[in-house]
Nucleic acid binder design. Structure first.
Length: 597
RNA sequence: GCCCGAGUGGCGCAAUGGUAGCGCAAUUGACUUGUAAUCAAUAGGUUGUAGGUUCGAGCCCUAUCUCGGGCUCCA
């Protein structure tokens, strides 16, 4: 059994064993070894290989690893001079590069394991036999660029899962299987929410169920923002490229745009990849006073961004999407308060969905534009806000990772496999107002340049849907569920009353489905359960007679003899408070007092 | 763009280079049912696409498209 704090050491030692095994696997063929760090679920090692390792090779390499472990070689640490190190690794180009990059005077250490030697800071286990209790499994291979730069050599990376014991490795493999069951790419088509067609890669087809959900979250967004003083607009999806020439986007980002040429007059058009320039066109239409600020133009138009092949990932990385966008025009003095307002919205929205997030602050990059004093002030204000809201450890800072036009705060979430995705973002923009030459009239009757705050809460609606599907594993809260109530008449003679119930529920804007088909009630229930419908209402003699319904809850619980009026009241309540619980709202019908709303 | 892998009825899968099958779903009929799979029959396929090798290709080769896991990228 390996103690937690030593796990990195074991993983790293196993990385050496892998490298040793791969060298042996290739026999006389010369291979280059690069680096082999440990990661969350194990480790990887990068190699320059004459021909790729494929999955079929995994067992053989694993066998070689096990043999090396059994052999019982010591991990021998040795300090060497730079000159000695360069001699030892003379034919290993990546190691030579690493050695040459080490600061002068730094102690260079190497580790020998039998005939294998690696440049390494350590520490390691003392003998390969110490690794016998560990469990590992070669997971996958990938290409990887030397030092993560696409201009460098392409290496082959071998990923290995590694855990202290067989039990823990199995636990991790079980987790992966569980994640698969949560995967929105699997659940989405299964629940008839969306799908992709090969003629529109990265552009989701929204099916009735999925669009209903998407509309539900968009409707909630509209209602909230209207009361908060946002004004929704819609702008052209297709524009002549002059728009982006002015905004500055054409030079930087035209490769990421879907562009088309009109042969009739040789004009060049593009599908908008972002809303900001169009928002500014609206701003420019009139002269604005400081008294109107903050002036908030929101929109949720469809955007297109061309991605390099291999970068798409279900709903989480698409080429066609909508943002719950807004561009807020503020004075420099209003930045802090407005950002705070926006983060309030984010907290409320994410809370409604039961999601927790981690903010990230990205600061001034090297190629920044604008005045450095404004940057400094804005960054200091953003930091103060984040400190206050989330505590010093409650957020991360990415130094130099801001956009060239201003610093930003990103909302980061994880998918079911732990991969991180940017959701909401609040970006200050000092540049676009200057590119378009927009101004406002200040209190002293002079013209000043506004600051634009680009902000999204959900981020991309598509990505947010993907995260929601995984968060709830397809079992959505009542208010989000595409079908909220499935109605099952037991026999044909119950259809009439079932239609009555359906009518009442529909009148209350509750999304229902009624199954009057000539099949066994069990089939009807099974069908609704497949779609994870929160409430299956069963109607038979008893219900017809007493004007009640019987509910089969998604979790299997049953509640009998509920008056229709109470049921409607309950559904309305669930919708109104956007309850995350499966049942709430009417005390007498709730089997357990489990309402948290 | 890069490396590896995958693509077979709507879905999930099967098929040594030798007649493309199974389950679910669908359709039709029977059954009229009290809480997650009633019975029977029927229909559904140029095996992603385009070439090639072969007497013969779902299977081998080439190209291409899409998808998956990563790398890089993500205004």
């Amino acid at each position: 059994m390996i103690e937690e704090q030593y796990l990195p050491m074991y993983r790293h030692s196993l990385a050496h064993i892998l490298a040793k095994a791969v060298i042996k696997f290739y026999g006389d063929e010369k291979i280059q070894i690069a680096i082999g760090p440990q990661i969350d679920n194990g480790f990887y090692y990068d190699f320059g290989l004459p021909h790729a390792i494929t999955e079929a090779d995994f067992p053989a390499i694993e066998k070689l690893m096990n043999e090396a472990i059994k052999k019982g070689d010591d991990f021998v640490r040795q300090e060497v001079t730079k000159k000695e190190a360069l001699e030892i690794f003379a034919d290993q180009k990546y190691k030579v590069e690493l050695i040459n990059d080490l600061p002068e005077g730094e102690t260079i250490t190497i580790y020998k394991t039998g005939d294998f030697v690696d440049l390494c800071r350590g520490p390691h286990v003392s003998n390969t036999k110490d690794l016998q209790s560990a469990a590992f499994k070669i997971a996958s291979t990938s290409s990887a660029y030397w030092r993560g730069d696409e201009h460098n050599d392409v290496l082959q990376r071998v990923y290995v899962y590694a855990y202290p014991s067989k039990g823990e490795l199995k636990e991790y493999l079980d987790f992966l299987a569980e994640a698969k069951a949560r995967d929105h790419k699997v659940l989405g088509p299964q629940l008839d929410l969306f799908f992709f067609d090969q003629n529109a890669p990265g552009m989701p087809y929204w099916l009735p169920n999925g669009l209903r959900m998407l509309n539900t979250i968009l409707q909630y967004w509209r209602e909230e923002h209207e009361t908060l003083g946002y004004h929704e607009v819609a702008t052209p999806l297709l524009n002549k490229n002059a728009l982006w020439v002015t905004s500055g986007h054409w030079d930087h980002y035209r490769n990421g745009m879907f562009v088309m040429e009109d042969k009739d007059d040789d004009s060049i058009w593009g599908l908008k990849p972002m809303n900001c320039p169009n928002s500014v066109v609206i701003y420019k239409r009139k002269r604005h006073s400081y008294k109107e600020f903050p002036l908030r133009y929101s929109d949720s138009d469809v955007l297109h961004r061309k991605e390099k092949s291999g970068e798409l990932n279900g709903l989480l990385r698409v080429q066609m999407f909508r943002q719950d966008d807004s561009h807020n025009y503020v004075t420099e003095d209003q930045i802090a308060e407005e950002v705070n307002n926006i983060l309030d919205i984010a907290d409320r929205f994410y809370g409604i969905f039961g999601l927790t997030y981690r903010p990230e602050l990205s600061t001034r990059p090297d190629d920044f534009m604008g005045e450095i004093s404004l940057w400094d002030r804005a960054e200091a204000e953003l930091k103060a806000i984040l400190d206050k809201r989330y505590g010093k450890d409650g957020y991360d800072i990415n130094e130099g990772d801001g956009a060239f036009y201003g610093p930003k705060i990103d909302i980061i979430m994880k998918d079911c496999l732990g991969r991180q995705w940017q959701m909401g973002t609040v970006q200050l923009d000092f540049q676009l107002p200057r590119n378009f030459g927009i101004v406002y009239v200040a209190a002293d009757n002079t013209e000043k340049i506004p600051v634009i705050i680009h902000r999204v809460i959900y981020g991309s609606l598509e990505r947010f849907m993907g995260i929601l599907i995984e968060q709830f594993k397809g079992s959505f809260p009542f208010w989000l569920a595409p079908t909220q109530v499935g109605i099952v008449p037991i026999r044909e003679e119950h259809n009439e009353y079932a239609r009555e119930v359906a009518k009442v529920l529909r009148k209350n804007s509750i999304h229902i489905e009624l199954d009057t088909s000539d099949t066994h009630m069990n089939n009807k229930i099974k069908n609704y359960k497949h779609y994870k419908v929160p409430y299956v209402v069963v109607i038979g003699n008893e219900e017809v007679e007493n004007k009640t319904v019987s509910i089969n809850l998604r979790d299997g619980r049953q509640v009998h003899g509920i008056k229709i009026a109470d049921f409607v009241k309950m559904c309305n309540y669930m919708n109104r408070v956007k309850c995350l619980d499966l049942i709430a709202g009417v005390d007498e019908v709730i089997p357990e007092t489990d309402c948290c709303c």
